[in-house]
Simulated scan of single mutants.
Amino acid sequence: MTKIKKSEETRTRILEAALVVFRERGFERATMREIAMTAEVAVGAAYYYFESKDAIVMAFYERSQSEMQPRIEASLTESKTLESRLQAIISTKFECFGPNRKLLGALSAHSDPEHPLSPFSRETSTIREQDVGFFERAVANSGVKLPVDIKPYLPRLLWMYQMGLILFWVYDKSEDQRRTMLLYEKTLKIILVVLRLAGIPLLRPIHRLAADLLDVVYGED
């Protein structure tokens, strides 16, 4: 075994051990010492690969994204409608994050963009923008006809919709998160109807108001 491969395996073992400890103890109560013991490495070795629990979570985010990416990209290539593409993206998230739903629930407390683990932070911007890119691909060539001043905002709005669903999901105590799946089904239908209606010329005054509002939210400072 090469030194590089051994190093990668040790890092992976520490990451896997951390996820186990986070599930059992919760993110806040877990310690690096407990993680090291579970991974059967020295505490110093754990700190060598990850300087903190935050660094471990960031590695979890990055690994999850890399694992989901080929699945989502394949689905986007195979699917033609916006509905099937959105279902592919969001359903993949639920499946991949399923084993760590409680961890995501604990991390949801860190929603402040100033916190490095927030999905809105500077530190997670690469992952976030790649995720928004999935929604850009979902919208492209999907037949959605929106005013030119609104369409550029749609991928980010859909990303926010996804984040809202995931937040509801992590706190959903119904069996197998049945309420989330029902919410997902119903709201997706509403979104698709709204998008179809949005292309009606009679609604142009509303289009302008919506564009102004979106510019306030997403425009430059």
Rank of each mutant, 00 (worst) to 15 (best):
S174D: 12
F94Q: 02
H110P: 14
F22A: 03
P201G: 12
S7M: 05
D172G: 12
S125N: 06
A210S: 08
A210M: 05
H115D: 07
M37V: 12
L209Q: 05
T10P: 05
F120G: 00
Y161S: 00
A109L: 05
A106D: 15
F168R: 13
I166T: 15
V194I: 15
L182T: 12
A74H: 10
F134M: 09
D176T: 11
P152N: 09
R85W: 04
V216L: 14
L202P: 00
S79D: 08
A42K: 07
V57C: 04
G26Q: 10
R128I: 03
G219Y: 04
N100F: 13
S52W: 13
G98M: 12
P116W: 02
A59E: 15
I190F: 11
I89C: 09
T124N: 11
G199M: 00
I90V: 15
A106T: 14
L214W: 04
S64C: 10
M37W: 09
A42P: 02
E16H: 08
F27D: 12
E136I: 02
F134C: 03
V216Q: 07
P201H: 06
I90W: 08
D54G: 14
W159M: 12
V20G: 01
I72T: 12
P99C: 03
K93G: 08
V57T: 05
G26V: 09
P70R: 13
S91E: 05
K5Q: 05
L15V: 10
R196A: 08
L146F: 00
A18K: 05
I166C: 09
G164C: 01
K6P: 04
R71M: 12
A46S: 15
R178Q: 10
D176Y: 10
P113C: 02
V217W: 02
R204N: 01
P155V: 06
R122K: 07
L167C: 00
G143Q: 07
H115R: 06
E123Y: 05
A210W: 00
M58E: 14
R29S: 13
A55C: 13
Y47C: 08
L154A: 07
F134P: 02
A39L: 06
D212V: 11
L195T: 03
S125C: 01
S111Q: 04
S91W: 08
